[in-house]
Design a protein around this nucleic acid. Structure first.
Length: 157
DNA sequence: GCCAACGTTGGC
DNA sequence: GCCAACGTTGGC
């Protein structure tokens, strides 16, 4: 059974355009340092799951593209790199703490901005819109997925 | 830069 | 195990 997710990226770091410029429009989703989000990648995601690519911490936060989970979970190498902002001195190679999945962008869309998402009554229960939400990965209900793709004019798969 | 909300840490 | 202090997220 296919699942759906919303994944936040900071465009200053890895925008949807940056990912589109990569081979196969695919990026290793490095830098997740929250256990709940890590567990989604480890236990919840399967290759082929749908991903809403979201820009956060920027001038116009919102959903900017449709992507897919393109690999199973793997060790995030940045945790062992002292030069990386994601370095974690407490994580040992023999017991890695942090994981990533590959994410492949399928469509760049217009920006379905945060105010537009909030104004859409059908998306009232979308987790990323909930007060206090800070998780970089949230699950998305199928009805919300379909509604967002329809609104963006992207054919459902 | 501000600040609300939330997760993590560490002393007890 | 509790919980205060602290750090981070992320919109504004």
């Amino acid at each position: 059974m296919k699942n759906y997710w919303l994944m936040k990226a900071e465009p200053a770091e890895a925008s949807i355009d940056d990912v589109l410029a990569m081979p196969n429009a695919t990026v290793g989703w490095t830098g997740v340092r929250n256990y709940q989000a890590r567990n989604f990648m480890r236990d919840g995601m399967q290759v082929g799951d749908g991903v809403l690519f979201y820009h956060s911490s920027c001038a116009e936060p919102g959903i900017v593209g449709i992507a897919r989970v393109a690999s199973g979970s793997k060790v995030d190498p940045t945790q062992f790199d002292p030069a990386s902002p994601y370095f974690d001195a407490a994580s040992k190679p023999e017991a890695p703490r942090w994981l990533l999945v590959d994410v492949q962008v399928l469509h760049k869309t217009r920006n379905f901005t945060l105010p537009q998402l909030r104004a859409d009554a059908e998306l009232a229960e979308l987790l990323v819109l909930k007060k206090g939400n800070r998780l970089s990965i949230t699950s998305v209900e199928a009805r919300h997925w379909r509604h967002i793709l329809q609104t963006l004019g992207v054919a459902a798969d």
